[in-house]
Amino acid sequence: MTVQLDARPPATPASGSPRQSSGRLSRFDTRFSPYLYIAPFFLIFGIFGAYPLAYTFWVSLHDWDLLGADHPFIGAENYTRLLADTDFWHALVNTLGIFVISTVPQLLAALWLANLLNRGLRARTGWRMAVLVPNVTSTAAVAIVFGVLFGREFGMINWLLDLVGMDPIGWKSNRFASWVAISAMVDWRWTGYNALILLAAMQAIPRDLYEAAAIDGASRARQFWSVTVPLLKPTIIFCTIIATIGGLQLFTEPRMFHSGTNPIRGGPLRESQTLTMYMFENAFAPHYNFGYGSAVAWLLFALIAIVAAVNVLILRRLGGGNRPQKGAAR
Rank of each mutant, 00 (worst) to 15 (best):
L248E: 01
R316V: 06
Q20L: 15
V164L: 11
Y51R: 13
M1T: 10
M156W: 12
R265W: 08
W190C: 03
G260P: 02
T30M: 12
R19M: 14
I182W: 05
L248H: 02
F88Q: 02
V136M: 02
I144M: 07
V312Q: 12
P18M: 13
N194S: 05
A184I: 15
G327P: 02
L121N: 08
H62Q: 13
S102D: 05
V93C: 10
I74V: 14
W188F: 11
S178A: 14
P234F: 08
G293L: 03
Y55Q: 10
L5V: 11
L199K: 10
A195W: 02
I101H: 13
D70P: 00
D187Y: 10
W58G: 11
A195E: 00
Q223Y: 07
D63C: 03
D63F: 04
A329H: 04
F257A: 02
W159A: 13
D29M: 15
S21H: 10
I44L: 12
S60H: 09
E211L: 09
L108M: 13
L299W: 05
V145T: 06
V296Y: 06
M166N: 13
L299S: 00
A328V: 00
T103G: 11
V145C: 02
G170M: 10
P206Q: 08
Q273F: 03
F290G: 00
R119D: 09
D6T: 04
F28W: 15
I47N: 06
F146A: 00
R128W: 01
I98N: 00
I264Y: 06
A84Y: 08
A123L: 12
S173G: 13
R207T: 14
W64M: 08
L61N: 04
F73L: 06
H258I: 01
G155F: 06
P40C: 09
A184L: 15
A181T: 07
A308S: 15
V148Y: 04
H62W: 00
G267Q: 04
P263A: 08
L250Q: 11
V312K: 11
R8C: 07
A69L: 11
L149D: 01
I236R: 03
S219N: 07
E77G: 10
A328H: 01
S272L: 02
A283N: 07
R81E: 14
S259H: 10
E281H: 05
L231D: 12
F99E: 05
D87P: 00
F238P: 05
D87C: 03
A181K: 07
T240W: 08
I38F: 11
R222A: 02
G170L: 13
L275I: 04
S183T: 06
V310S: 08
R152Y: 14
N194Y: 06
A91E: 03
I242K: 05
A309N: 09
Y292M: 06
A204V: 06
T228W: 06
G246P: 01
R323D: 09
A328K: 00
F99V: 07
L108N: 09
K326V: 05
L107D: 07
I241E: 09
L303Q: 12
F290A: 07
